[in-house]
Write a protein that binds this DNA or RNA. Structure first.
Lengths: 203, 203
DNA sequence: GTCTATAACAAGATAGAC
DNA sequence: GTCTATCTTGTTATAGAC
């Protein structure tokens, strides 16, 4: 029997509870490290009740990942070819950093997936993501050709934006331990990345 | 009964085989995702034979991680306070990138550990790593105070070096899929990072 | 819809022959 | 030292009462 489409209020609420708990556990432990017991306990439900809402463990994970992928493309999608190059690139950096701050668990879920060779999202990466990156890389290359930004490899540029912004979410544990518990690890990040990319892309 | 200290040639050889296979599997699947069956198969030994050389799964993992941590500090350790600031920082970036290229599995093993909250290396991070980072941050701050490099937060600077260099190892799967199978993902990385950090730290 | 109880199946670890 | 066979535990998933 398939899990029901969420019709009632209580069903929608429980599905949300489960997905939120599962995001906690999967992002912190990885797919195999997570157990249904942990997720159930964190959601305040029994394990069989979890499996009333989702057919199996994998479906919970796939749901989280799928929901995430749409949001994942948005910041880059918004990079406008007819905008001011500097403002567009710095704006993209800010939106990406904002995502790391607001959705660190999602970032870690994604990082776990990539680290393991992206087995479940290979289609997404080779498909939608690659298409979008190729499109925006061409835009950036055009700006460089016009001398409106420095002449940089657009792929390295995009990857460096991902690396720097996602690091604040994915390696947050390390930053916190190195800097000490009291520190907000995002403090100063936006201004640092603003400076870094402004100096990098200045023509 | 404890596993034997490696005395004979064959023991040393088998321990190496096991650790190399385990590094493959742990770095790709994470601690919980890895199974002794996979490691044994990859090493060409039987599962009980693995456990003749190591008491249990955790000891294999701990051995890999411990061996890694020494090497992990070296590039930053070599940043010399009395050297030329620009050359020292760019040299550190190059050494770190070189480690990502030569030891991508080790980088992913480390990344897996941090993503999960660094449960097994918290002591290392709060201890040796924090001490080294604090020490070198002070050096960098001194350079900035003397106007020999730009005035940047040294912690954000160090973290950004980690983020950018390790990304080439940890997110290699994504880069390969976005760029296409034929591409060497490290191609152009050194010159890109050279440019990035040279422009960033120029006074 | 939710629960207790339990089946079914990995996966870590051990026993004991060779 | 290495293997086959097996024990034991943890985990996913199902049965069936309520």
């Amino acid at each position: 029997m398939n899990a029901p489409r969420p019709r009632t209020r209580i069903q929608r609420r429980n599905r949300k509870l489960i997905l939120d708990a599962a995001l906690d556990v999967f992002s912190a432990q990885g797919y195999r490290g997570a157990t249904l017991d942990q997720i159930a306990a964190s959601a305040g439900l029994s394990k069989p009740n979890l499996l009333y809402y989702f057919d199996n463990k994998e479906e919970i994970h796939r749901t989280l990942l799928t929901d995430l992928l749409d949001a994942w493309l948005a910041p880059l999608h918004d990079l406008a070819p007819d905008g001011d190059p500097q403002a567009e690139i710095l704006g993209y950096v800010r939106r990406k950093l904002q995502m790391s701050r607001e959705y660190p668990r999602e970032s870690r879920l994604f990082a776990n997936e990539i680290l393991q060779g992206a087995p479940r999202i290979e289609g997404f990466i080779r498909g939608d993501l690659k298409a979008l990156v190729d499109e925006k890389a061409a835009v950036i290359r055009g700006w460089a050709a016009q001398g409106r930004i420095a002449d940089l490899d657009p792929y390295h540029l995009i990857f460096s934006i991902w690396a720097l912004t996602q690091h604040y979410a994915d390696f947050e544990a390390q930053m916190r331990m190195v800097r000490g518990e009291g520190v907000d690890t995002f403090e100063g990040a936006e201004s640092y990345l603003d400076t870094l990319f402004a100096r990098l892309i200045a023509p």
